[in-house]
Design a protein around this nucleic acid. Structure first.
Lengths: 222, 222
DNA sequence: CCTGCAGCCTAATGTCATTAAGTTGAAAGC
DNA sequence: GCTTTCAACTTAATGACATTAGGCTGCAGG
């Protein structure tokens, strides 16, 4: 399945052309001829590599999400603490989006809101991404960081919803501002939503201590 | 502009047909012939009433959002308290979605994630809907219900993101469960995210008092 | 040398959205 | 009452695309 020589190259060339054309002009306004021309092919030749235009639309995000998921495993390795992980989860997603906005655009603008999305292969990986969060929440409840009676699915709706919204908005606004801009504020509110009383109290305490003991620097890093 | 007799009826008949066909089969898969046939017309006649297929797509949500906004003003009248208003805001939106899911589908699945959405007329009304929230947050900060240092825009991202996510998910799942199902849990988490320490303490206190004084019923109403 | 077939190509073919160019029937002017 | 006008329709085009048909071509394996 991944053993052709030239075929591999042509296939990739098609994907590359489609990627930028879709992201730039949208799915509908991109014609098969545009794509095949950009890839240096005739229209018909494209059909030897893909079942059709829609197949092409689905292939690209498929690759992207698979990569995102794979990277996530690696990023999470060795981390401890629900909020440390949640933060990493959010930042990693956003970094991937910022790094390849063209693919992100396909996922967020065309795929995720498509009626047949839930029947695609990509959805399997997206479900895995979602499942990750439930684990983190449950772990946090067990460790006492998170409210013990919190509904993890409700929390996930908030987390994913917020993240998706910020990404979609950024893409709609043509990436005209840094994606991470207001993320720190947003994350802080999310922590407040999920955290147990004890965690919030400890956090508060720590802040006071640090303030009292000396130099209070501007940021909130660390 | 709105004074033809039969024309008005035909126009409405077209809108009605388009509404259900778009929502059922999606924008792309619905043909102009489908719509005009359903409205009892020839294809060409439709062009005497609308500039084209896309014009039709934009007209429907335009009406819906305008209505939503108008209703909101009325619903908000006389309410006091940031969280009372936020709750009403959320519930009113969801009720409208549940009441006319076909229109909601157009807004959430086709329009909001469309690159040219921000150039449409509908966007003007959507912005008004968003502005409402900022006012509520600011009011809450002034009254002490909400954290005084909260970034209202960050809060809005969370609120809107969550709401949109829950709606989109419900629509994608073909409205197969009650939209309001887990809303109570979600709203409670949102309150925790935004509320000031004092508000949370008071809320907590009230609960304890109620528990101590007698009958602890199941729900969380009131 | 054949054979098979992957990778291309140049036309069809078929499905739409959108226009062109007329009908028709009824209100408006005389 | 007769013509003019015009809105609301109609039946063909027209043109843009996606997708197929059917055929070359060059090279790997016998």
């Amino acid at each position: 399945m991944a053993n052709h020589r030239k075929a591999e190259t042509t296939r990739e060339r098609i994907i590359e052309s489609a990627r930028s054309l879709f992201a730039e002009n949208g799915y509908q306004k991109t014609t098969v001829m545009d794509i095949s021309k950009a890839a240096g092919l005739s229209e018909a030749a494209l059909y030897d590599h893909f079942r059709g235009k829609e197949d092409l639309l689905l292939t690209i995000p498929d690759l992207w999400v698979a990569e995102l998921l794979e990277g996530l495993d690696e990023q999470m390795f060795g981390l401890q603490g629900a909020f440390v992980k949640l933060r990493k989860y959010l930042w990693w997603n956003l970094r991937r989006v910022e790094h390849s906005p063209l693919d992100a655009k396909l996922v967020y603008m065309f795929l995720k809101h498509n009626a047949s999305f839930m029947d695609t292969e990509v959805y399997g990986n997206v479900k895995k991404l979602y499942a990750y969060l439930i684990n983190i929440f449950e772990e946090g409840k067990a460790s006492g960081e998170i409210k013990p009676d919190m509904d993890s699915y409700a929390a996930r709706s908030i987390f994913i919803g917020t993240m998706d919204y910020m990404i979609t908005r950024w893409l709609l606004k043509d990436m005209s501002y840094p994606l991470l801009e207001s993320m720190e504020d947003v994350f802080e509110l999310l922590v407040a939503a999920f955290a147990s009383k004890e965690y919030l109290a400890a956090q508060d305490n720590w802040r006071k201590t640090r303030l009292a003991s000396g130099a209070a620097q501007t940021g909130g890093e660390g």
